[in-house]
């Protein structure tokens, strides 16, 4: 019998491509319809995030795949992993209508692609206040939260881990500001992860934040590598007219 692909791939490393994620999913125990749902989420992400790059120049799809990879390794449900792939879709996604934020039409589109449960997580991620103050107010008191809000927090923490784990933060223009944000929120994030009952995520966040604050950020190459303060779209030259950036 042919060897299953599970077990091949970067074990213990956050996936950055759909192939790495697809290799990881069976290893993490996902089967049948769960795999199909995550694949549909990736295909929607591909459509909506086409050409979008992070401030570091890294492909945005790699970031959302990384977020999903973290959630998969934590054994989250397929709905949550799919939400990881789409978590920023309402803010950064290009639905072709030139708008940002969640609109009824966009919500229906996402619901049709990945189902209402995943869409609800994505929607709450989009409308939730992620400011310093709101996160501090949350602290580690997560008791009053509904399950879906806990899942939203899980996606947020996976998103943070993905941004710091590969050092990508140092390749973006506002990395100093971002590091200040980290120093203010590192403890809150770690406590949240512990309160969510995922100590391995808390540990990974602690290690990533520590690595981030200890690193030298003044290399001229790093400065050159930094592109823009925010994420941006690089459309193919033949399709640039009027493209939303």
């Amino acid at each position: 019998m042919a060897e299953q692909i599970c077990g091949k791939g970067p074990e213990g490393v956050i996936a950055q491509t759909n192939i790495q994620l697809y290799n990881q999913l069976p290893r993490d125990g996902y089967r049948g319809p769960a795999l199909a749902q995550i694949r549909r989420a990736y295909e929607l992400a591909l459509e909506i995030f086409a050409g979008r790059c992070q401030p570091s120049g890294k492909c945005f799809l790699s970031h959302v795949v990384g977020t999903a990879s973290v959630l998969s390794s934590l054994g989250q449900s397929a709905d949550v992993v799919a939400a990881g792939l789409l978590h920023n879709v309402y803010h950064n996604g290009d639905f072709g209508d030139g708008s940002t934020g969640a609109t009824p039409a966009k919500r229906i589109w996402v619901q049709r692609a990945v189902g209402p449960v995943t869409e609800e997580i994505v929607y709450r991620f989009a409308v939730k206040d992620w400011s310093h103050e709101a996160l501090r107010a949350h602290g580690s008191n997560l008791e009053p939260l509904e399950d879906v809000d806990r899942q939203v927090l899980m996606v947020f923490l996976a998103n943070e881990l993905e941004r710091f784990a590969d050092g990508g933060i140092f390749y973006q223009r506002d990395c100093a500001g971002r590091l200040r944000f980290v120093s203010q929120l590192r403890e809150v994030s770690v406590r949240m992860a512990e309160a969510l009952g995922v100590p391995q995520l808390a540990e990974a966040l602690r290690a990533a934040f520590r690595q981030a604050t200890e690193r030298e950020i003044s290399s001229p190459v790093l400065r050159m590598a930094r592109t823009t303060p925010g994420s941006y779209v690089c459309a193919p030259r033949s399709f640039r007219m009027g493209c939303r950036t």
Partner: peptide
């Protein structure tokens, strides 16, 4: 294959 951003395709 090429998959340009939707706004670019639809604007075109």
């Amino acid at each position: 294959y090429l998959r340009p951003p939707l706004s670019a395709r639809w604007r075109m």
